[in-house]
Amino acid sequence: MTKRILIVGTGFAGMWSALSAARLFDLHSHTGTEIVVLAPQAELRIRPRFYEQDVHKMTAPLDALFDAVGVTFVKGAAERIDIAGKRIEYRDASGNPALLNYDRLVLATGSKVARPTLPGIERVFDVDEIEQAIRLEEHIKSLAQQPESAGRNTVVVAGGGFTGIEVATEMPARLRAVLGADANVRVIVVDRGSKLGGALGDNPSPLIAEASEELGLEWRLNSTVASVDADGIFLANGERIFTKTVIWTAGVRASSLAEQIPGERDAYGRLHVDANLKVIGQDDIFATGDVAYAATDDLGNYAAMSCQHAIALGRSAGNNVAASLIDVDPTAYSQPKYVTCIDLGGWGAAFTEGWDRQVRFVRDEAKKIKSEINSVWIYPPAADRATALAAADPSIPVVA
């Protein structure tokens, strides 16, 4: 009887899980297991680029790729994991309830921005999902039709982490492209931290400060947003900032589907997994990408919620879930090399290596690397069977 691996999600981790499982079956000439991917769309949404313009272009179709490697795609939104029955309850493309059984499950449903409960939170924008990033882009373009005011020309970014910095440093140029090259624009970053760029560590922090000064960014440190209204925000200290544009980037949390699987979780809701990415305490369920709390090495480092780690986690999860069905030894997940490349708008970029983020390249040199990452490295392989399967080898190092 044909068995089934069910992978939920078509993000970086889900896509690479599917390709890697297909690769291992191909290596061992195994044809007795079906690989099924369940997701709302057969496309990879290039989430790391949602801070840029032309967001509607930042998708990559997966239909032909899945067809090339023999993966079945099912269009639908997962709602409930029935662990005892080994099945997923979902809504199909028409919104009707449906079921998919599995022999092995790979949860790869990613994460979402963590919006707090505060007055007016429904007014804020974010770049977490493509629909929200497009909504923000349309809003920025519409500012030119509004009467000139301090609020119209001001953008507040809530959160001074990686995403917040990339959004903020891009924003002066985006605003001036709409409001005019000589427009008096303000971009204000509100961050609960005590050091500018401190979320990225001591080494990149001076570069972020330099870029902020050159681009005219303002920072409100040791600060949080208390409320949002039609004319602006109040900070917790009582400061009033007039703005028509508030972008929320502060914090993410693992997909709520992870909460349905019994097991230990970290502070972000990620499931603790073993070295092979199997959920601890579950025989038939693997977690990968942003829903997995996975050790990258033996030094106490754990995967970040980033595409860099999701790609490698996906390759490992797919390989190991397939191995569990054909009596092949798994390959333990390991990703000791860690880099970051943060876009700093018109200033350039900063490329770092290691968990202590030693700076290696800056400004234009780093910007070229960032451009290659964003336009080439993180995209799916060609829809050619041999090329796609070769690219899914879990031993391939990921630097993105």
Rank of each mutant, 00 (worst) to 15 (best):
R4M: 06
L6G: 00
I7Q: 04
V8T: 15
V8E: 03
T10C: 15
F12M: 12
A13F: 05
M15N: 04
R23H: 13
E34M: 07
I35A: 00
V37Y: 07
A42S: 15
E43I: 02
R45Y: 04
P48T: 10
Y51C: 07
E52G: 11
Q53V: 11
T59H: 09
P61N: 09
L65P: 02
F66Q: 05
V69G: 12
V74A: 03
A77I: 09
E79A: 12
D82K: 03
R87H: 10
R91V: 03
P97A: 05
A98N: 09
L100C: 08
N101R: 13
R104K: 14
L107G: 00
P119D: 13
G120P: 08
E122K: 14
E122Y: 07
E122F: 06
R123H: 12
R123S: 03
D126F: 01
D128F: 02
Q132F: 02
A133H: 02
I134M: 13
R135G: 03
L136W: 09
H139F: 09
K141W: 05
P147H: 13
R152K: 11
N153G: 10
N153C: 02
V155M: 04
V157I: 12
A158K: 02
G161C: 03
E166T: 04
E166P: 02
A168E: 11
M171G: 06
A173N: 11
R174P: 01
L175V: 06
G180Y: 06
A183D: 06
R186T: 10
L196R: 15
L196G: 06
I208T: 06
E213P: 00
E214F: 06
R220C: 05
S223A: 15
A226I: 03
D229N: 15
D231N: 14
F234D: 14
G238Q: 11
E239I: 06
R240I: 07
F242L: 15
T245L: 13
V246W: 01
I247Y: 06
A250Q: 08
A250D: 10
R253S: 13
R253T: 14
S255H: 08
A258K: 01
A258C: 10
I261C: 06
E264L: 05
D266N: 14
D266M: 03
G269R: 11
L271Y: 10
V279G: 14
I280Y: 01
D290C: 13
L299R: 14
A304C: 04
A310E: 04
A312Q: 13
L325T: 08
S334C: 12
P336R: 15
V339A: 13
V339L: 15
T340D: 08
D343P: 08
L344I: 12
G346W: 05
T352R: 03
G354L: 08
G354R: 08
W355I: 05
I373K: 00
P381S: 06
A383R: 01
A392L: 09
S395P: 01
I396A: 06
V398K: 05
V399D: 09
